[in-house]
Design a protein around this nucleic acid. Structure first.
Length: 257
DNA sequence: ATGGTGGTCTTACCA
């Protein structure tokens, strides 16, 4: 079994002990991180290398930043969306055991009718363009990360309150369904899941305790991986940690020979 | 009750 996970850690500096603990205890082979918020010079590489892990990362000061931690060698690293000028470090594609792993931190979008929302939709369009060609080159491909989009109303704790707002708006959901139309599947919905399953809870208003969350951390898989996918889960435990990230890890198990 | 939390080379901004 090959276990692949995604976790928006909201500062790798703060969350490093939690990441190391969870990576080991959860039997994860490949972990995609978002919001590392660390420059490449300050990335805590040694903490992973001394354990024999393989790493790839691209970051910046204060904001954004993505990384991949792997128990298997990493090949063919691409650290930016091609043909898209972007100062923000949100994209990292790697190949591990013949599987193309595309780690994304999709822009949040702030609110509809803002420049950040326009940037979010443009970014998603550039991702779509990239995946069109990438899927022709890699039959085994997955796109995982913080999509900052809840695919459906059942992924939202209070759809009425959220209606039309950023993270659920129709243009964002259209951009997500355009990704799925390339031949990708939201792995979480391949399996029976508990109702009110979420991956992110705002720090404010005791939202986690009240399970007022959204499912915005996704693992999209190509058709060739569909047949190999044995499970897709949300691992809620790390959200209960002291000083938790506001996101919790999501994970798939792939059958491999 | 129009707030609230948490992260960052902070005291403003992002989420």
């Amino acid at each position: 079994m090959l276990n692949i996970a995604s976790w928006n850690v909201n500062s790798l500096k703060v969350r490093l002990p939690q990441v190391l603990d969870w990576f080991e205890s959860s039997d994860t082979d490949v972990l995609a991180l978002q919001e590392t918020k660390v420059t490449d010079e300050n990335f805590p590489a040694e903490a992973f290398l001394e354990k024999g892990y393989h790493i790839a990362y691209i970051g910046q000061k204060t904001y954004n930043g993505v990384a991949v931690i792997s128990k298997h060698p990493i090949e063919d690293v691409v650290d930016a969306l091609p043909d898209f000028v972007d100062e923000q470090k949100r994209f990292l594609a790697v190949t591990i055991k013949g599987i193309r792993v595309v780690n994304v931190y999709v822009p949040n979008g702030a609110a509809v009718d803002t420049d950040k929302y326009v940037y979010k939709l443009a970014w998603l369009d550039a991702l779509n363009q990239f995946l069109q060609t990438e899927l022709q080159k890699h039959s085994k491909l997955l796109v995982l990360g913080d999509f900052n989009i809840a695919p459906e109303d059942r992924d939202v704790h209070d759809p009425k309150a959220w209606e039309g707002s950023v993270l659920v708006s129709a243009p964002e959901r259209k951009a997500l369904s355009d990704l799925l139309a390339l031949g990708l599947t939201d792995s979480f919905r391949l399996f029976e899941q508990e109702e009110e399953s979420y991956s992110w809870w705002d720090y404010r208003q005791a939202n986690f305790r009240r399970n007022r969350g959204l499912r915005i951390d996704l693992i999209l898989i190509s058709e060739a991986l569909n047949a190999l996918c044995q499970a897709s889960t949300i691992n809620v435990e790390p959200r209960k940690n002291e000083r938790p990230s506001d996101h919790t890890p999501v994970k798939i198990s792939l059958h491999c020979d």
